[in-house]
């Protein structure tokens, strides 16, 4: 099995008519994802490579029965696009867009929790989600992942996720689902959301968690693992030697006031029984050992 999305998931692309949306929409479709609709307020009735365009998410849901949406809308429009998707009736929203203001994120995060508690938002500023062999929503190169499990991956970084998928594939290890939660200060989906889903997914036997400096999401995940996760976890945290007070590429990757350091996160994870690698390769090797022991 997989978490959040599988071969039955029908997806709407908000921004399918744009350059990024049409490019990744096509790649996702070629991978096998059910790309059933796009939206554009002024282009309803047209199509992109045969995928019909509707005026908004609500109409697209009504016509296609889609349950998920993927947002390739410029940052200024993301807040509106997220709420449009939730109001339109989808229950899983992937916001790929980078550069969304933190106040917008905090606003729609809380608005969703209050008015649409069943909606799971992934991102913004994330590579998306892939259940290898079944469904790929976002910008991950599908062919670098081996299908089938037993490993589930959750990560704050795009390229480090790809690296992990690729290394596991080279070791002939499959992945149930790989979730990129993104590098922004208010991610819609947390490590804990994914850990919880992986823990209940029978095909996921082990979990790989890739974190980075900034915030306390890894520490909270460590607490959760200690109390609720029975499956083995390997981890890697990027930014051990990052200087304090500097944003390292991602808006959320910053050590401020001595908080959010990689050391503190690694210690918390180790204390929760997680096997922590010093670099991505080492974390991959630790996971290979875990899988070999099954």
């Amino acid at each position: 099995m997989s978490i959040f999305v599988d071969e039955t998931t029908k997806v709407i692309y908000q921004g399918l008519t744009g350059s990024q949306g049409s490019y990744y929409g096509r790649l996702n479709r070629e991978y096998g994802t059910q790309v059933v609709a796009g939206t554009h307020p002024k282009k309803a009735g047209t199509d992109v490579d045969g995928v019909p365009i509707y005026a908004n998410v609500a109409e697209a849901v009504q016509e296609t029965g889609a349950t998920a949406s993927c947002i390739f809308i410029p940052a200024a429009g993301v807040r509106g696009a997220v709420m449009e998707a939730a109001e339109g009736g989808v229950t899983f929203i992937v916001a790929v867009t980078e550069g969304v203001p933190a106040h917008d994120e905090a606003h729609f995060y809380n608005q969703l929790k209050r008015d649409y508690p069943d909606v799971q938002l992934l991102g913004p500023n994330c590579p998306g989600i892939i259940s290898p062999g079944k469904c790929n929503i976002g910008i991950t190169a599908g062919h670098i992942a081996k299908a089938g499990g037993p490993v589930g991956i959750v990560s704050r970084s795009g390229t480090l996720t790809y690296q992990a998928l690729y290394e596991l594939k080279q070791k002939n290890i499959g992945v149930t689902t790989c979730v990129g939660i993104g590098g922004d200060p208010v991610p819609g989906t947390s490590f804990i959301d994914c850990l919880e889903a992986f823990e209940t997914d029978p095909e996921t036997k082990a979990i790989m968690m890739i974190g980075e400096i900034g915030g306390s999401a890894e520490e909270e995940a460590a607490e959760y693992i200690k109390d609720h996760v029975t499956k083995p976890v390997s981890s890697y945290i990027a930014g051990v030697t990052a200087p304090p007070g500097k944003k390292m590429g991602h808006a959320g990757a910053i050590v401020s006031g001595g908080k959010g350091t990689a050391q503190a996160k690694m210690e918390a994870l180790e204390a929760a029984g997680v096997q922590v690698g010093n670099n991505p390769t080492e974390a991959g090797e630790l996971m290979a050992e875990i899988v070999a022991s099954f």
């Binding site: 970084s157 890739i210 930014g239 500097k246 670099n279």
Partner: peptide, 30 residues
């Protein structure tokens, strides 16, 4: 020079781990 913020951070870390000192963090994107 690395592509992706995570990989760039990781590169800086690994240089330190093998006893060197990085001159910068630089993410050129995907």
């Amino acid at each position: 020079i690395a592509n992706g913020a995570g990989l760039a951070m990781s590169t800086v870390d690994v240089i330190n781990q093998v006893g060197g000192k990085p001159a910068n963090f630089l993410d050129i994107g995907g």
